[in-house]
């Protein structure tokens, strides 16, 4: 468990009061992000993302699954977050479970709300078969702000995911799926609608974006918002006493920063570089 001494905490609070942070960032600035895609050859899509000290690895596996509970969705997303015990002492025993279920729940709800894969091409047999995207997220190292790192890595992993072309053969009322013989016949997923999280910590009376682990330990509250490229809100979770007046100011910042961040991510994937 990460701990800070009283003196450290006082120093951190004083620094933030002056409008800068311990690592020299502005209050609403991200740490450097580095990104790698296609790191797992056996997965349909994968990415590895480093945000400051936080490091996550995401693998996507594409399968065909049965439709559950009379839903009409073409795609079913299953998120699994695993917090590696080697990353932090917080992740030993039952603590890890509550961390992972919280992160998983937030991601699931944001992606459901954003309705990301509303795509004609992904249609299989409606009401019978659907695509099953299993997104496995592994937190390798924690340096604060896992939520944002996870959401960015998930988005990039999904954007590089290849979905094989499938022909539907109907025989005697039952459907059979045949995968195209050409292994290169794949579609990439459109992820324009996929949201990303932006997390603020409330330290003293100031909100800081992308908190490091020291800042998270000293924080008295958190605000985590999922936005998509249009600036629509897909998920919000906050705790700790915060002023209602602050909210609207923060949301404009969130909208602006979210857009820049998403564009930057898309660019990076397209150009195959890291920033």
């Amino acid at each position: 468990m990460y701990a800070v001494s009283k003196a450290e905490k006082a120093y951190l609070l004083d620094t933030i009061e002056t409008g800068t942070r311990l690592d020299g960032r502005q209050l609403f600035e991200y740490r450097p992000i580095s990104l790698q895609v296609g790191v797992l050859p056996s997965a349909s899509g994968s990415s590895r993302l480093r945000l400051g000290e936080t490091e996550v690895l995401v693998g996507v596996k594409v399968e065909v699954g049965d439709v559950v509970e009379s839903s009409n969705d073409n795609v079913q997303l299953l998120f699994t977050v695993e917090c590696s015990g080697s990353a932090s002492a917080d992740f030993l025993g039952r603590e890890a479970e509550s961390w992972s279920s919280e992160l998983q729940n937030a991601l699931e709800s944001a992606y459901r709300a954003a309705n990301v894969f509303d795509d004609e091409r992904l249609s299989l047999v409606p009401g019978k078969f659907c695509w099953l995207f299993k997104v496995d997220i592994l937190v390798l190292d924690t340096g604060g702000n896992m939520m944002d790192a996870i959401s960015m890595a998930t988005r990039t992993a999904l954007s590089t995911t290849l979905v094989p072309r499938v022909h539907i053969v109907q025989s005697e009322g039952s459907f059979e799926l045949e995968i195209d013989d050409n292994p290169d016949a794949c579609d990439t997923l459109k992820v324009e609608k996929a949201p990303t999280f932006l997390t603020f910590s409330l330290i003293g009376n100031h909100f800081v974006l992308d908190p490091s682990i020291q800042e998270e330990t000293c924080a008295r509250g958190k605000l985590s918002v999922a936005v998509d490229a249009n600036g629509d809100i897909c998920h919000v979770y906050s705790f700790g006493l915060l002023d209602a007046v602050e909210l609207s100011r923060l949301l404009t910042i969130i909208k602006k920063t979210g857009k820049v961040l998403l564009n930057r991510l898309d660019e990076c994937v397209k150009n195959g570089e890291s920033s």
């Binding site: 998509d228 629509d232 949301l251």
Partner: peptide, 13 residues
């Protein structure tokens, strides 16, 4: 002040 906000679903600001 507010203690907690939880929101699910897609909405404009």
């Amino acid at each position: 002040q507010l203690c907690e906000i939880q929101h699910t679903g897609k909405l404009s600001i």
